[in-house]
């Protein structure tokens, strides 16, 4: 029996512990945001957060998520208002869109630890996320935009609980991520 938390909800799993987390999320929990692209950790379409760090769900067995907090793109917001999601919409980043949940999860993890990344920081953090449609320039621009949106949010008076944090970029961490 494996216990874990997915997007803030406690879960128990008693299937094959070697099954990749991706199939548990997609087919057992019906969280279809993380995508299957290569199954070998090569494309990043399946990227989710495990205790706030990116992992490739296609090559992470469920057993590796025991007692961990998992966040998927569905866990960022219930209405698409997470700053990274907002930036992605404003710049209309997607073409086919298939890679984008993975891109967004990698971007969130980057911004959480580096609230004002340079192009080079972004390239390093995002190089494992392939986009077959070639939207890289917009992905990069949207990450800068999300950084701006977040910075302007945190300097405003704290109207939202998320802005109360002293750690810059912390509101880029999805709800319920991090060790609990």
């Amino acid at each position: 029996m494996i216990k874990l938390k997915v997007n803030g909800v406690n879960r128990q799993f008693d299937g094959d512990p070697e099954m990749p987390l991706l199939w548990y999320l997609r087919d057992d929990l019906d969280l279809k945001g993380a995508k299957f692209g290569c199954g070998m950790g090569l494309c990043g379409a399946c990227t989710v957060h495990l205790n706030g760090k990116t992992v490739r769900a296609c090559s992470t067995p469920v057993s590796a998520a025991a007692n961990a907090a998992i966040t998927t793109v569905e866990g960022l917001s219930s209405d698409g208002t997470h700053p990274v999601q907002v930036a992605w919409q404003e710049l209309d980043v997607p073409q086919c869109g298939y890679c984008q949940a993975g891109q967004i999860m990698s971007a969130c993890a980057l911004l959480a630890k580096n609230p004002k990344p340079t192009d080079a920081d972004i390239d390093t953090a995002m190089n494992g996320n392939l986009c077959r449609c070639g939207t890289y320039l917009r992905v990069r621009a949207a990450i800068h935009k999300a950084a701006e949106l977040t910075a302007s949010n945190t300097t405003k008076p704290a109207t939202k609980p998320v802005a109360k944090t002293s750690r810059a970029g912390a509101n880029l961490l999805p709800r319920n991520s991090g060790k609990k």
Binding site: D30, L31, K32, G33, A34, T72, V73, E74, L76, S77, D79, G80, Q85, W88, Q89, D92, V93, P94, G97, Q100, A101, I104
Partner: peptide, 10 residues
């Protein structure tokens, strides 16, 4: 469908 994409809708 951009919003659906960024929200991970099925």
């Amino acid at each position: 469908e951009t919003k659906d994409v960024v929200m991970g809708k099925p």
